[in-house]
Design a protein around this nucleic acid. Sequence first.
DNA 1: GGAATAACCTGGATGC
DNA 2: TGCATCCAGGTTATTC
Length: 298
Amino acid sequence: MPELPEVEVVRAGLAPAVTGATVEAVDVLDERALTRHPGLPSGFADELVGREIVAPVRRGKFLWMPLAGGDARALVGHLGMSGQLLLRAPGAPAERHERVRLFLLHPHHGELAVVFADQRTFGSLAIDALVPTADRAPGGHGADLAATPLMVAHIARDPLDPAFDENAFRRALARKESAVKRVLLDQTVVSGVGNIYADESLWAARVHPETPVRMLSARAVTRLLGELRAVLQKALAEGGTSFDAQYVNVNGQAGYFAHSLEAYGRGGAPCSRCGRPIQRVGFMNRSSHFCPRCQRLP
DNA sequence: GGAATAACCTGGATGC
DNA sequence: TGCATCCAGGTTATTC
């Protein structure tokens, strides 16, 4: 499931290959990949062909490639649960679940294809207008411009973003009545966190996922934020989390962070701190994993 | 207005 | 062996 580290690995992989490249042609094989595109699916290719791509940018789980020219538009991607952006030779055979293929011409690397494949079709591509950021800081990781696509404007900055406002994060927590895990998954409060890294950071900070967020002390919030950053950075260094073929980098290679997981996906296995079995419970139509001894409800 | 929930979707795993 | 059901979860629309 692509969360911040996985999307960042994809962004970093795309950057040298697509920056400065021109879109020569676009094949839309499945229009469900364009569900977030504000215009008609038929106009997607027309808007892209002939345009030069600027360096890719990421905020949270959203990825976008600004288009050169004066009209402030960008190709925006979200990988959903199973989306992949792959670099391929233009004549490479179709990927399983391939939805869109962009044919690019790069001034130094020549012709290449960017393939968007997505098994569960929760991911999408779109072309959207760029709007100024509210805090006037660069739009996200990899950005020079203080702008984001309109559809990303409501997404908070992620904890690894230098412009992440820790005080605003604390104020947002103080206003919430929900459980801490629900707030961590709220992309308008803090972005880039999904089920895996929410469970992992809560385990590391010894916080029960159902703890009402207003009951967390300032010290506990500091600890949680620190552990969240540490988990995300470690996952990034290890190339992200891959359980199966659902997440791979632009070359189709899996990440290694699944070997470092302490809570997520380890229901019934002993906690590495205390030995008690990790518990798995239903939460928000998905699963929460936590240690009942190390992570107690206040 | 904020919080909670359902729906979207596909393929692998499981049960019968 | 074949079919039916369950499960995974990010985002958003809908409901409370």
